[in-house]
Amino acid sequence: MAVNKYAYRFFFLFFLVVAWHCGVPQEGKSLYTENCVNCHMADGSGLPGIIPAINASLVIKGPYQELACLLYNGRQPADTIKSFVAMPSFKTLTETQITNLINYVKKEWTEDPQFVSEQEVAAAVKACQ
């Protein structure tokens, strides 16, 4: 019986690990495909001179708070003559979705991704409203 108890614990932990590795990036990837690919492209390369590449972006590599605010509020270009497409606001996404999206882009385009929790993103979004 004791073995079984440990076996259950092992499987529970195993399930959690699998859920984290498969579930979260999967949702992040589909959110990226739905909301970001048309401008930033599947490989994050953007459109040179028009849409910023995010695969080498300092915003992606930088603090998650800044990224959360950018996704939540969007960004109007500073110079509307020289910039073409505004970064839209993704207020319609839930905090869970924003978290998954941030974790996806960080996993894809940072060397040492620091994953964030939904609570951390919720606090960051609240602070930038």
Partner: peptide, 13 residues
């Protein structure tokens, strides 16, 4: 159109 936030950038690519 240049300010197109949907499919234009991917087509331009």
């Amino acid at each position: 159109f240049t300010s197109c936030p949907s499919i234009c950038p991917i087509v331009k690519k």
